[in-house]
Amino acid sequence: MWKMTETYVTVCMRRGFADVKKRFQWILIIAATVMCIGAGAAAEDEMVTPPVKIINYRDHIEPILKRSCYECHGENKQKGKLRLDSPAAIRSGGRDGAIIRGKDPLRSALYQLCALDPDNEDIMPSKGDSLTAEELLFLKLWIEQGSLFPDGQSAGGVSENVPLNELDRLSLTLPAVSEAEEQAIEALRASGVSIEMLGKEQTLCAVNCSHVATINQEHLRCIVARIVWADCAAPVCDDALLACFAQAPHLRRLHLEKSVVTNEGFQQLSRCLELEYLNISETQLGDAIVPTIARLPALQDVYYHDTQLTRMGVMELRIALHER
């Protein structure tokens, strides 16, 4: 361990980190203490920032690439259609696509392939010595820090930032799931209701109760503010259950296929102002529901095959939805 540390200090100094030396003096003291109390075995998955702060392409990365990679990925040869001898070439990647993905070394082939086990057939460089631990660390940090080139451009691309969708944004506005809600969700799941948490903050849920015989409506009411998508495509869904879902302020999609909801019960849905999708196929619902549907401001799609809707009712429905 001491040997390793010494090498590390030497490397850092050789590479011009004068301040590192000072820093190391007291780090070494701490290290000695730590080892005395036997905490040398650190948690394996706990990754630690080493003393080097900012990795610079010219000083740290280019020399590694020059020594270990240019021979096969340079001017003379372009194995795998990959060149590593210029920032532009690194950015454009090789036959297998980008070699740097976001700020994630583990998904970036440039780091990942070099960090493989030495006896793995895919390891890079495929000829000559593997990269040293220090070199790997530099590569890793460089990618984590955004793989910047001297011109300030990154190699990681922008597609890595998962775009937020509407549900993600909505999920930000709701409080975290409370303990009581957690219990309700567990109880519902135990009874066979499928509940999937959605959105960036995982504060929304999709509920599928089409495969259960009975549903504990009290539990359902407990989480009703979080329901954005409900599947009650089964005879288990009656007016009473619909009353429950009708209280969901953010309900977007509602499946009522094969349900036994009545025309009167359906009117409760007039409160679902965010409802965008409604499927009432194979139900006994008829023209009486058209005024209720027509007043739902966000509704875009209605599916209605095998219902009691007459041609007249469908036409009214179309006009109502079309006028939006």
């Binding site: 040398g40 630690v48 631990a133």
Partner: peptide, 16 residues
Amino acid sequence: VFSRRQFIFSCASALC
């Protein structure tokens, strides 16, 4: 596959 890295990281953890 990360054995080598884990080694250096555990060294570094002990240090920092």
